[in-house]
């Protein structure tokens, strides 16, 4: 009993301290957002701001040009949530196809999918841009959102690997019960790969949230800019930069991602222990 207590204490002590070490840079970032712009680098060694100021938040929240910062957050939210829904659902469907059905050419399609992961983005960027230009999709979110609805290779592969850890007896039992493939997928597989889907949702959310290249290329009007793009506009290497506002809004833009993470990580906690093996 007592040794269990000590173990418990040691565990929390270790994990807690370790987490704080890992978090030091993040804490530095947050603290910097309360320092005056011209002191952020001069007092970089000191963690506690002196003086504490809130004006960075006020200033940053006003936004850039004619756009208040909330516009950028709203834009990011639209792009990111639609992309995430599309990416997770379509990838699960495709992953099931790869993991649990057999068809001619499966190897070929799987290989093609893996290959798309290996080509550096820089070289497909120009033809892709021309393609979206031909579709008339420039200066909109379509080039960023729509492709997500057709399966994201990273997530497909992730879910394939997860589905393959699920015992096949479940499928057989379900098939004998007269379950079609689609119902097998929805009734049995989806609940079982919920942790993987939650993982994919978290990734998708923050990848899209921090994605800079898509918005840089496809969104021209500042009223449609996303957070990642807006943050860079506080800075200019040649003249004075608004570092304070940049740090402050970086902190603000972390909040939605943290909330999403906190919500979805529960799915991973629960995982198989509650949803599992009901089928």
């Amino acid at each position: 009993m007592n040794s269990k207590r000590i173990k418990w204490l040691l565990y929390h002590l270790f994990v807690g301290c370790f987490a704080i070490v890992m978090l030091y840079p993040v804490i530095w970032l947050v603290m910097s957002s309360f320092k005056p712009s011209n002191l952020i680098f001069v007092t970089a060694g000191k963690l506690i701001p002196d003086p504490w100021i809130w004006t960075n938040y006020v200033d940053g929240w006003k936004g850039i040009g004619n756009q208040p910062f909330i516009t950028f957050i709203r834009n990011s939210f639209i792009v990111v949530s639609l992309s995430t829904i599309g990416a997770v659902l379509s990838s699960a469907l495709v992953a099931f196809g790869f993991a649990r059905t057999n068809f001619v050419g499966k190897g070929l399609w799987f290989t093609l999918m893996m290959l798309t992961l290996m080509l550096p983005f820089e070289v497909v960027l120009i033809p892709q841009y021309i393609l979206f230009s031909e579709l008339g999709w420039l200066n909109s979110y379509l080039p960023i959102i729509v492709p997500q609805f057709f399966g994201v290779p990273f997530f497909i592969f992730l879910m394939v690997q997860f589905i393959r850890t699920i015992p096949g007896e479940l499928d057989e039992a379900a098939t004998i019960d007269g379950c079609g493939k689609l119902r097998l997928f929805i009734r049995i597989i989806v609940p079982l790969i919920a942790p993987a889907m939650a993982t994919a949702a978290i990734f998708s959310f923050y990848w899209r949230w921090e994605d800079l290249l898509g918005p840089v290329l496809y969104v021209n009007s500042p009223s449609k800019y996303t957070v990642s793009l807006a943050l860079k506009m506080f800075l200019d290497s040649e003249t004075i930069s608004n570092w304070g506002a940049m740090f402050a809004m970086s902190v603000v833009s972390l909040v939605p991602v943290i909330i999403v993470f906190f919500m979805f990580q529960r799915q991973i906690v629960e995982g198989i222990s509650t949803t599992g093996l009901k089928g």
């Binding site: 040009g65 960027l125 120009i126 841009y129 021309i130 230009s133 420039l138 800079l212 290249l213 840089v216 290329l217 021209n220 009007s221 500042p222 793009l229 860079k232 506009m233 800075l235 200019d236 290497s237 040649e238």
Partner: peptide, 20 residues
């Protein structure tokens, strides 16, 4: 219609625009 950006984003965008 204004389209403004930071220095490096500006040039990243301009080349594909020219290509298209």
């Amino acid at each position: 219609e204004p389209e403004y950006a930071s220095w490096d984003d500006y040039w990243t965008r301009l080349a594909p625009q020219a290509a298209a």
